[in-house]
Amino acid sequence: MKRVEVLAPDGVPEVGSGDDLAGLLTAVAELEDGDVVLVTSKVVAKAEGRVVPGTRDDLLATETARVVARRGPTTVVRTRHGLTLAAAGIDASNVEPGHVVLLPVDPDASARRLRTRLAETTGCTVGVVVTDTAGRAWRHGQTDLAVGAAGIRVLDDQAGRLDPHGNELAVTAPAVADELAAASELVQGKLGRRPFAVVRGRADLVLPLGDDGPGAVALVRADHEDMFGLGSREAVVRALRGDPADVAAFGAPAGPDDVLAAVVAVTGTTPRQLADGGLEVDADPAVLRPLAHAHGWRLETDPTGPARIRPPGP
């Protein structure tokens, strides 16, 4: 029988700038080798002096790398950490009025510092995960996920393993750091004043001291891998605008078959394929321009002949 325990100690006082998180945790919990310590990004940020005057609207631009989508009062952005979060993860709860809590500057570095400090004070080898709350694109509600990690395998890559029927797994890779973060919230609660949790029973995920692992940044999809880098409305606007700075938000350039299918679907014409892999199209350039932009290709126009859509250059 496999057993995992998730413990969230009571008795942690209000955290302020400069507080020793390791000391606060060890005052209320006894750690063991192989434990995974989870701590909310809010108390990490408070300890690191990330409580600032202002509102979410005041600070949103400074914490945003690019806007993903807007719907009414909600703005979902890609932060400079690479995270996709509503309001850039800026938190206005459990803080004095007129102030907000920003995410830690480098959550992976925060996790590494806490892990080192815990090893110094307890002699234990533990993993550390910094958690935050996020929504999901296709589901209601929120769950906690890992925004920082140290000393833990954040992904359990099972590619190449065989299932009980002998089928080889190809892309199965549970995001175990996110799963641990979600489990911790079940015992911490949003109003319970329990900023720490300890998961016991997954020592197999914990790395030896001196090996902090790839960090939670390894869970973040790069722009070229992101299939949902923009909201549906925003994608239309960005494609029509055609700003070269927006190309990354559409992901990696599309392959020739995808571009050909898109041109046929939008224009109703059958392009002629060129020797370099490009397409010659008898269609309005005003239609082809956003189509090419959204697929990462280049549009070339000639007033004396048909337009051409070419793959991105070197």
Rank of each mutant, 00 (worst) to 15 (best):
E120S: 11
T122S: 10
G123V: 02
G123S: 08
G123D: 02
V126W: 00
G127C: 00
V129A: 13
V130Y: 04
T131W: 02
T133P: 01
T133A: 15
W138Q: 15
W138Y: 12
R139C: 11
R139F: 12
G141Y: 02
T143V: 15
T143F: 10
L145S: 11
L145G: 15
A146N: 06
V147D: 11
G148L: 07
A150S: 15
A150Q: 05
A150T: 02
V154A: 12
V154R: 07
D157R: 12
D157Q: 05
Q158H: 09
Q158F: 01
A159M: 02
R161M: 10
L162G: 03
P164S: 09
L169Y: 05
A170K: 13
A170D: 10
V171N: 13
T172A: 15
A173P: 06
P174Q: 11
P174H: 08
A175F: 01
V176P: 02
V176Q: 03
A177R: 04
A177H: 05
L180N: 02
A181T: 06
A181I: 03
A182T: 07
S184H: 03
E185C: 10
V187Q: 08
V187W: 03
L191P: 00
R193A: 15
R194I: 05
P195E: 04
P195F: 03
F196P: 08
V198L: 07
V199R: 00
R202F: 10
A203D: 14
D204V: 08
V206P: 07
L207Y: 00
L207Q: 01
P208Y: 03
L209F: 05
L209M: 14
G210L: 09
D211T: 05
D212C: 11
P214G: 09
P214M: 02
G215Q: 10
V217F: 06
A218L: 05
A218C: 07
R221Y: 09
A222W: 01
D223F: 03
D223S: 14
D223K: 07
E225Q: 15
E225M: 12
G229T: 04
G229N: 08
L230N: 07
L230M: 13
L230W: 03
G231T: 07
G231M: 08
E234M: 11
E234Q: 15
V236G: 05
R238K: 14
R238F: 06
L240I: 06
G242F: 03
D243Q: 11
P244R: 12
P244L: 12
A245M: 04
A245F: 00
